[in-house]
Amino acid sequence: MSEATAPKVFIAGKPVEGVHEVHEHVSPISSYVKVFGALLVLTALTYGVSYMDLGNASLPVAMIVAFAKASLVCMYFMHLKYDDRYNVFVFISTILFVAIFFTFTIFDLMQRDAVNPEQDTFFRANFGEAFGFQPPEPPEGAEAGGHGHE
């Protein structure tokens, strides 16, 4: 079998040699330990920040930390950093479609009043009474919400 007749084997569009081995990237244990440490620190950070009164900034801060953690898990634990580009493409397009789903639905709900002013009233009025939700009045001196029991 000469060089000229041997067909090349392609993976992800690239010719590969040594076709009977799997050549995936093996990360050193130390990189996993570092990522694990970073995830724990970020968890402590979200937990700590939740006790501070950040007002409206609270949601964006929590989301930024969550996205940072998610990126670490995806890139290092799920090997996307070293992986086939096709898998990265699948993942990124999923996130893109989730973003479209969120944006358009929220946009619709926010703008609905402009078209039909009664829409909002209808939505709210029926929401509370659904399932026959009729909470009794709290008795005198009873603790009225807002204070966690744990």
């Binding site: 993976i11 076709v19 009977h20 081995e21 086939d84 898998n87 699948v90």
Partner: peptide, 13 residues
């Protein structure tokens, strides 16, 4: 499948 690597890549995709 031609190769183990191709097989692994397909499963992972």
């Amino acid at each position: 499948f031609d190769t183990l690597e191709q097989q692994a890549a397909a499963a992972k995709l």
